[in-house]
């Protein structure tokens, strides 16, 4: 087994440097910004995005459409429920799952889908202190995710530059609901939109430095795709074939 210190010594010898040295600040990387500078930048980003809201919405919709999202703009949560139900109906789906993202608790999805005869499953498990039992519950949730036809989630950020939505999985917000079903529907408000990837990673870095470290950040831009067979673009490989964003407000 290669010892870490031996490995680092090999790297230092190769670089021709000694162990004790300060690395010189280089402003090409954001690494040297202090925690406060990052927090301040994050606040500025939020303020700036609020000011440029209309412009950002247009750019986001343009780029998201280009990337293959189906965009639905609606006035309120009731209409959002209607849009989601219409997609479910169009696919004749019966196995529908949603995450427990905050915004979805404002959308009257359960009743709208019930009227179609669809029982909406919520992708959460009852955590257990017993490790084996907890694993079993997670595995059962995983099975259900794989069996679902439509997955509905909220989004944490939307990036205008690229038409990307980003999610940080956590309790109530599963990784698989936006991945395993053939159809994914994201529900968001315009407040989620930020200008570019620069702001996205400034904000997630701020989360991290403030101790809110999540297990993953998922960036999703349109449907799953491949060009591996004679460079033909094919939509829908391992992830969803069809993706929708419902923008409320």
């Amino acid at each position: 087994m290669a010892d870490k210190q031996d490995f680092l010594r090999m790297v230092r010898t190769s670089l021709g440097v000694s162990e004790r040295r300060d690395i010189a600040r280089d402003d090409a990387t954001s690494f040297f910004l202090s925690k406060d500078e990052v927090s301040q930048a994050a606040d500025d980003i939020r303020a700036d995005a609020a000011e440029r809201r209309t412009e950002l919405i247009d750019e986001f919709i343009h780029r998201a459409t280009e990337a293959g999202w189906n965009i639905h703009r609606v006035a309120n949560f009731e209409d959002a429920a209607e849009e989601v139900t219409a997609v479910v109906r169009e696919h004749g789906a019966t196995a529908v799952m949603r995450s427990d993202h905050d915004i979805l608790n404002s959308v009257p999805l359960e009743s709208a889908l019930k009227a179609e005869g669809v029982d909406l499953e919520i992708a959460v498990r009852e955590p257990s202190d017993d490790a084996d039992e907890d694993l079993e519950r997670r595995l059962s949730l995983r099975e259900k995710s794989f069996d679902s036809e439509v997955g509905i989630t909220g989004v944490d950020f939307a990036v205008a530059e690229t038409g990307t939505v980003a999610m940080e999985p956590r309790a109530g917000s599963s990784r698989l609901v936006s991945l395993t079903p053939e159809v994914h529907i994201g529900v968001m408000t315009p407040e989620a939109i930020i200008p570019s990837l620069d702001e996205l990673f400034a904000l997630t870095r701020d989360h991290h430095l403030s101790g809110e470290h999540k297990g993953m950040i998922n960036l999703i831009t349109g449907p799953s795709r491949t060009a591996d067979i004679e460079a033909n673009l094919i939509i829908g490989v391992h992830g969803p074939r069809e993706v929708h964003l419902v923008i409320v407000g």
């Binding site: 309790a171 999540k214 960036l219």
Partner: peptide, 26 residues
């Protein structure tokens, strides 16, 4: 690489599943 503005997915993994998360590796 592909000429896409961004790929369909970028997955940033920050270690194993955190306590409370619904899924992800232990």
């Amino acid at each position: 690489a592909t000429g896409q503005r961004i790929s369909s997915y970028v997955t940033v993994v920050n270690g194993p599943r955190k306590a409370g998360e619904e899924d992800g590796p232990d």
